[in-house]
Simulated assay, not measured.
Amino acid sequence: MLRRWFSALLFLPLTLGLASCQPEPPQSAGDTAPQSAQIAIIPDDPDPALWVLKDEDTTIYLFGTVHILKPGLSWFDEAVKDAFDASDELVIEMIEPEPAEMMKIVNEMAIDTTGVPLRDKLTPEDREKYEAAMTSLNIPVNAFDPLDPWFASVSMSLVPLMQSGYDTNSGVEDALNSHAKARNMKIVGLETPRQQLGFFDNLPEDVQIRFLNFNVDSIGEMADGMENMVAHWANANIGALAELMNAGLEEKILYETLLSNRNANWAAWVEERMKQPGTVFMAVGAGHLAGDDSLQAMLKKRDLKVKRIKY
Rank of each mutant, 00 (worst) to 15 (best):
A143Y: 11
M94G: 00
M185F: 11
K307H: 10
V91W: 04
L212V: 03
I41L: 12
W269F: 14
W51Q: 06
M94Q: 12
E191Y: 08
L249W: 04
K121E: 07
L53I: 14
V116I: 15
I253N: 03
P97E: 07
L118T: 05
V159N: 02
V91R: 01
V66L: 13
E250F: 11
L212S: 01
Q296M: 11
N261F: 10
I39E: 09
L254Q: 00
E98M: 13
L254I: 04
Q196Y: 05
V141E: 05
R183I: 13
T168G: 07
C21H: 05
P25H: 04
M274I: 07
R3K: 10
M185P: 01
T59I: 12
Q276M: 13
P204K: 06
S87G: 08
E173C: 07
A267E: 05
P25A: 10
D293A: 12
A247T: 01
Q27G: 15
L90Q: 03
E93P: 05
N228D: 06
N235H: 03
D201N: 14
H179E: 12
R262Q: 08
S178P: 00
L197R: 02
S294E: 03
E205I: 15
L244Q: 05
A247S: 15
I111C: 02
L190T: 09
D126P: 00
G165H: 04
A152L: 06
F11S: 07
K301M: 12
M103Q: 13
D112Y: 10
T15S: 13
R119V: 11
R3M: 07
F6A: 07
M226N: 00
R308V: 11
I187F: 06
S28F: 15
I95F: 02
P124I: 14
T279W: 07
G248F: 03
N169M: 14
T58C: 15
W233H: 02
L137I: 08
S7N: 10
D148N: 14
M274P: 01
T59C: 08
A234C: 07
A143I: 07
T65I: 12
E227V: 04
E221H: 10
P23K: 07
K305F: 10
H179G: 01
I68D: 01
G285D: 03
T192E: 08
L50A: 05
I41D: 08
T58L: 12
D126S: 12
A33F: 07
G64T: 06
R127M: 10
S20A: 15
A37M: 03
Y61I: 08
D217E: 09
V306K: 02
A236S: 13
P26W: 10
M226A: 08
D148M: 15
M162G: 01
L50K: 03
D112V: 04
A286P: 02
G17R: 03
A110Y: 03
E78L: 15
S294M: 09
D224E: 11
Q195V: 14
E271V: 09
E227Q: 12
R183T: 09
D224P: 00
H232V: 04
Y166T: 05
G171R: 04
A132R: 05
W51L: 11
V306L: 06
W150T: 06
D167H: 08
L289W: 05
